[in-house]
């Protein structure tokens, strides 16, 4: 226990890093999911093609690999552009935190695309026609009706994506983001207690995923209160 306490500040800081990573990725996940699902359901063949490419690529590649490709790929590109302007520059990269957030969001965003698409398709056409018949524009119908009905249908699947997202935040230590896994690696290289250190990480993840599960229960309760009311 003493070994953990010695590193408590670092573990705490690391926890905040992954929480921040989680929320920033989440915003991106929702964005990719909405864009992807809308594109897949659109009439435009090009949009559908791009969205299909996105989901095939990001669901078919190991997350770990995608993370490395995004980080090093962007660094190589940025460095070569920078050197064309100023040959003195040695190395330039996107901050690892942002590269990590982006890479994770692509993977989970690809899964969210499929979940959102299915949920959009699950909306009864009658509600959409009723809104149209009231003179609402397509844009208004999308934001005021399709999205609120879609996210309710997507909720159970989306809860699973949130758990995956949380767990994927562990990966970013590989590009040097100082999350809790990074802390554990550093600590165990000093105190030679890898088991205790990694167990601590596991407990922190377990605690955070419990928070997510409980939160999702509450959100579902709110989202489906109109069904409860009918009983």
């Amino acid at each position: 226990m003493q070994e953990v306490m010695n590193w408590s500040d670092e573990f705490l800081a690391g926890t905040f890093v992954i929480i921040k990573l989680f929320f920033i990725s989440l915003v991106m996940v929702i964005t990719w999911g909405l864009l992807g699902a809308t594109a897949k359901l659109s009439n435009s063949r090009i949009a559908r093609g791009i969205a299909n490419g996105f989901t095939v690529l990001c669901r078919g590649t190991p997350e770990f690999l995608l993370l490395l490709i995004v980080y090093f790929g962007s660094a190589v590109t940025l460095t070569s552009i920078a050197r064309a302007i100023n040959p003195e520059i040695r190395f330039l990269d996107i901050p690892p935190f942002w590269a990590g957030a982006f890479a994770i969001s692509l993977v989970i965003g690809a899964y969210a695309t499929e979940t959102f698409r299915g949920a959009f398709l699950g909306i009864d056409k009658g509600y959409i026609e009723a809104a149209k018949a009231l003179g609402m524009t397509r844009f208004q119908v999308f934001w005021k009706l399709r999205v609120p009905m879609m996210w309710r249908l997507a909720l159970p699947g989306f809860g699973n994506h949130l758990l995956s997202l949380l767990k994927d935040t562990a990966l970013v230590s590989v590009i040097g983001v100082e999350g809790i896994l990074f802390t554990a690696q550093q600590a165990s290289s000093v105190n030679h207690k890898p088991f205790t250190m990694y167990l601590t990480v596991a407990f922190i993840f377990l605690a955070l995923s419990t928070v997510i599960v409980v939160t999702m229960k509450c959100v579902e309760k709110y989202a489906y209160r109109h069904l409860e009311a009918a009983r």
């Binding site: 009864d124 509600y127 026609e129 009723a130 809104a131 009231l134 009905m149």
Partner: peptide, 12 residues
């Protein structure tokens, strides 16, 4: 205005 057979009130 239009009224449908299946009401189509927004359930949520």
């Amino acid at each position: 205005g239009m009224v449908f057979q299946s009401f189509n009130l927004f359930p949520h």
